Simulated scan of single mutants.
Amino acid sequence: MDSASRIQVLYDACDAVFSQMELPNFQQIQWLRKILDSIEAIDVGIDEFSTLQSPSSSPEDSKRLMCGQNVSNITYIHIHQCDNFSIGVFCFPAGGVLPLHDHPRMTVLSKLLYGSVYVKAYDWVKMETNNSRTIGLAGKVMDGIMSAPSEPTVLFPRSGGNIHSFTALSPCAILDVLSPPYSEELGRPSTYYWDTPIPSLPGYAILEERDLPEDLVVKGAPYLGPPIAIAMEIC
């Protein structure tokens, strides 16, 4: 029997960890991080160096790899989603910006597959809702550049930089695992924010909810990596 693909191993681990009744413990999160760290762009159907379509590594598969250097808009590759978690990849062109946004009640593991990206991230210190808009004080968790190869990051509902933005400094791709996934119906929408630094309080800013940015365009692209055998679950 052929060994499982790396993305299959990640799926199986996420299914085991996030389908349990209890919240993941430290050891389980570190296990997932280790698996995530082993994944490369080719494992999710992306040729990070190419600007031209290239044949997939499997001669039996007529699909072609996505060209990592040829992305002109922020592009999301949907790999899997169920009630407990989602797996997907954001591909960025150089200069692409994903504005400041949050991950309500979510644990998020991310792996920068290739390229460089400027990341700014905050956690709430105090927040309130006025006229259906969220505003509050937040502390900066990260304000710097990440370049591949780099270790996977983890953010939690109240720590780790739950509210973050990305600005691609070069073509890049980020593999994301979200648990649970976004859901408007279940009160987990993606909310965007303006940040206003406080000069007298370095490292802190006022965050204010904003409308969905009109200039934000995220296109979808098919997943061209190895197929995933899905466990018997309600998705």
Rank of each mutant, 00 (worst) to 15 (best):
F156L: 15
E22I: 05
Q28N: 10
S3P: 05
R33E: 10
S150G: 08
L112N: 02
L32N: 03
S50P: 08
P104H: 08
M66C: 09
E184H: 09
E60A: 08
S116H: 02
L36C: 14
R105G: 06
N25D: 15
S200K: 13
S179F: 09
L201F: 13
A16P: 00
C235H: 12
W194G: 06
Q30M: 14
M127I: 12
H78S: 07
I206Y: 07
M106D: 04
E151V: 11
L23K: 13
T75Y: 01
A121W: 05
C82K: 03
F26A: 14
I35F: 05
P199Q: 00
T153L: 11
G160T: 05
I42C: 00
H80I: 05
L178V: 09
N73H: 12
P181H: 11
R133V: 05
L216C: 05
M66W: 05
L65H: 01
P93H: 08
E208P: 04
I87S: 01
E40S: 12
V125K: 06
P55S: 08
D215I: 05
G68H: 00
M21I: 13
A229C: 13
A13T: 15
E60M: 13
L23Y: 07
K63E: 11
V177Y: 04
Y11V: 12
S54I: 15
G144H: 09
P99S: 02
S19H: 15
L201W: 11
S54H: 06
S183W: 15
A173Q: 05
P202L: 11
D102R: 00
P181A: 10
Q81S: 11
D83I: 05
Y182R: 07
A16K: 15
Y118N: 12
M106K: 08
P24H: 03
S3Q: 10
A94E: 14
L137Y: 02
S58K: 03
P171E: 00
P189T: 08
A205N: 03
A121H: 06
E185W: 04
S3V: 11
L216P: 07
L10C: 10
M21C: 12
L23V: 06
Q20Y: 03
L65A: 08
S50N: 12
E128R: 11
E233A: 14
H101G: 06
Y11T: 13
V154W: 03
T191H: 03
G220W: 04
K63G: 14
F18A: 12
S170Q: 14
L178K: 11
L137F: 02
T134F: 10
L100T: 00
G96N: 03
L65D: 04
W31M: 13
L216H: 07
A121G: 15
L113S: 00
P197A: 08
T167N: 09
Q81E: 13
G225C: 05
N70G: 09
G220C: 06
K120Y: 02
V141T: 12
Q27W: 09
F85S: 03
M232C: 11
V141Q: 12
W31H: 15
G187D: 09
L65P: 01
H103Q: 05
F166R: 07
L98F: 14
V97F: 07
P222G: 06
R6M: 14
